[in-house]
Design a binder for these strands. Structure first.
Lengths: 236, 236
DNA sequence: ACAAAAGTGTTCGCTTTACACCCATGT
DNA sequence: ACATGGGTGTAAAGCGAACACTTTTGT
């Protein structure tokens, strides 16, 4: 039996959200067959680091960004051919960042990192299109049964932002079902969970009545979860 | 930068079900530090095979079994230390087999393969206990939103078998909620999906009224799925 | 005053739940 | 005849869906 000659890499698909737009972080490749092609941040795992460490390191090195949520997505092991001399297996992660980090510093190597609107991604290197597809499915699914939307918002946000986030990310789904999020029902539902606390801040943007800001209470959520509570927002 | 020295392996957690019992397939290790310890079937991925091929091959070689359902579970990459000379990353898969395959042939290397009742697993090698834990969570979760229970039953089965399967696998969950599956409601629900077809066979086992056999119509399910149908059985 | 966004309750229909008796066979 | 498991309907409650007007600010 020949010695195993497979390399292991990680790839990150990092989502950001701002002003009713979902963004994906991409890196321009500098070398190799895919030179000047956009790709997801990622790279080979070092011998001494864990997989999540590797992902975080790559995202930091390539874009100067720290994610606020990270979750393993899937391991793509059948077709990736990154390096002609060796087979590569890639463990893909989904990351979320809050809007403060959406502006990229031009430090380090970050010149070639850029946020792209999810609608309107360029052609991607390797099999990254497949990863993106799986990632958006996961994001959409998780949005309906886990409170991860908050990781894409500022720590304190008006209710309408949360609502708009759901509308944006689930747009395709809602369209297919010919449904729309009902503002009142959505708010009622979320508030009934008791995982949001209202701050005493009120924010006014342009015209219209100013909005009260809310904060997600992670701790409260974890408590409730232990008691058997399930976050769930349905669209049927 | 030192050359990457990480090996990639696959592990399979294969579930079987029979007579209100959930089983897990285990292999007795023949060599190494874990000699004579039970472990999940698995091993290193060959250079030329895909991950799923690797899993299927290992399960075949080590237990002479072919699974009827296979799904990637998770990639465990942070702590596995299988071989003292190299780090090992393991991609775990969940497999399901129907009851016909629950009797192991004594051919090939299968002498050291054995089905263990899920309640009552021995101490496992490596980090396999962690894999088992994640796998049962996945199995329980999927049971409620995907029609995978059928892969654990014979192609034609009485309704009570399906019901008992759910009761068995979700026992912990039902206990925690102090709920029980209602026979009538369960049946009504499942039948309302229109993914079961009744056969004209009637099966009599011991005493009691004989039961009509049903068959899962995979094709019908796929059609419905395309139209936006979601299989779902709740326990709240 | 008007435009723009935030905030708020009620009714209706459907889905889920709870619940008990008869049926067909083996012994 | 009795024991065993299979098969069936209905009523009440709870939840999700639909829906419109008032409030507060900017211009």
């Amino acid at each position: 039996m020949k010695a195993q000659n497979i390399k292991i890499a990680v790839d990150a698909i990092v989502f950001g959200y701002e002003k009713a737009q979902l963004y994906v972080l991409l890196i321009k490749q500098k070398y190799g067959v895919f030179k000047d092609t956009w790709s997801l941040p990622g790279g080979f795992v070092l011998n001494e680091e864990s997989l999540t460490e590797a992902v975080k390191r790559e995202v930091r090195e390539e874009a100067g960004i720290t994610v606020s949520y990270l979750e393993q997505l899937y391991t793509f092991g059948d077709e990736v051919q990154r390096d002609p001399r060796a087979r590569v297996i890639s463990v893909a992660y989904v990351g979320l960042v809050n809007p403060e980090k959406l502006t990229l510093q031009a430090d380090t190597d970050a010149q070639d990192a850029q946020w792209f609107p999810f609608q309107g991604l360029p052609t991607l290197a390797y099999d990254h299109a497949k990863i993106v597809e799986k990632a958006i499915e996961r994001l959409q699914a998780k949005l309906s049964y886990q409170p991860i939307g908050f990781d894409l918002l500022k720590p304190e946000f008006p209710f309408s932002d949360l609502e708009q986030l759901y509308k944006t990310i689930l747009a395709k789904e809602l369209e297919r079902l010919e449904k729309d999020l009902d503002r009142r029902n959505f708010r009622k539902k979320i508030l009934s969970f008791g995982i949001l606390e209202e701050t005493d801040k009120i924010q006014s943007i342009g015209s219209g009545r100013p909005a009260r800001l809310y904060r997600f209470n992670q701790q409260k959520y974890k408590e409730l979860e232990k008691e058997g509570f399930h976050f769930e927002i349905k669209f049927a």
